[in-house]
């Protein structure tokens, strides 16, 4: 694809180790061709923002990376493990890849503390005390330790999303995926969630973020990817992407949202 630009020099925080490698990946929903010949390499520490109009396949792309969706052609390699029909790999990869959803998907019947310790206790087989320490550490990091014993339904949307981020972090994942994390939030709550994400980016976490928050993209992204109708149309560093979009479809999209 001629209009995909590969940046040769990236910021110093990024190592040369490859975390995610997607080669010639295709996905269909029935007859509908959602993702077309996707090639994408993400290195350790790299922060990538994916944007594009709705229905362009950006959510599906990141859902394929932690195998919530199955792809039909091509290969996806995450942290050296090839995703495929082998079910044993699946739980292992999912534990290494954290994901934050648009609708939080917290467990409403458990307290915040229980939401956070569930993974460490049942998947990582930790003791209760140790799991609790980890949970409190990350709750403090997202700045709501005082809410630990409430139920998700008692928290505001922004707080719930921060809990969701902390829940993923408790599994000490190698990669974090964000699927429109601020789209379901009231405007005054978006900032508190983005602040947490910026903090996280500063720690050197490998992140792929699907979002329409262009200010956020400019601040943290090493690269911005623009998708349309299942294609990766353009890939560039944020300055070049926003100031100087090359493809016509990118220009059109940016003119509509900026």
């Amino acid at each position: 694809m001629s209009n995909v630009q590969t940046k040769s020099q990236l910021a110093s925080a990024i190592s040369s180790e490859v975390m995610i490698e997607i080669i010639e990946m295709n996905k269909w929903y029935g007859d509908f061709h959602v993702l077309k010949d996707i090639d994408l390499t993400v290195r350790k520490g790299e922060r990538i923002v994916v944007c594009g109009p709705s229905g362009s396949g950006k959510s599906t792309l990141i859902r394929c990376i932690n195998a919530l969706e199955e792809h039909q052609e091509g290969t996806i390699t995450v942290d050296g493990i090839l995703l495929g029909k082998n079910l044993k790999n699946l739980d292992h990869i999912r534990a290494e890849v954290g994901m934050v959803f648009q609708n939080f998907n917290l467990f409403p019947h458990l307290t915040i503390r229980e939401n956070l310790t569930l993974g460490p206790i049942w998947v990582r087989k930790m003791g209760k005390v140790e799991a609790n320490e980890i949970a409190m550490k990350y709750l403090e990091r997202v700045k709501i330790p005082e809410q630990a014993d409430k139920y998700p339904g008692q928290l505001s949307g922004g707080q719930q999303q921060r809990v969701a981020i902390a829940r993923s972090l408790c599994m000490s994942p190698k990669i974090m995926l964000f699927d429109e994390p601020t789209s379901a939030l009231d405007p005054e709550m978006i900032k508190e969630v983005l602040d947490v994400m910026v903090d996280l980016a500063d720690t050197g976490m490998t992140m792929i973020v699907v979002t329409h928050e262009m200010g956020f993209a400019k601040t943290i992204a090493d690269e911005v990817i623009f998708m349309d109708e299942g294609d990766i149309v353009e890939r560039n560093n944020p300055d070049a992407f926003f100031d100087n979009p090359e493809h016509e479809r990118t220009q059109q999209f940016l003119s509509q949202i900026l």
Binding site: M99, L106, V123
Partner: peptide, 28 residues
């Protein structure tokens, strides 16, 4: 569906998801 997806992303297996997340809520 988001509940089982949420459970999968923290690495819970099928039976873990059913027993800890889905069944307790469905029972109600």
């Amino acid at each position: 569906k988001g509940q089982s997806e949420g459970a999968h992303t923290i690495g819970l297996s099928y039976w873990g998801t059913m027993g800890l997340i889905i069944m307790p809520q469905a029972l109600k």
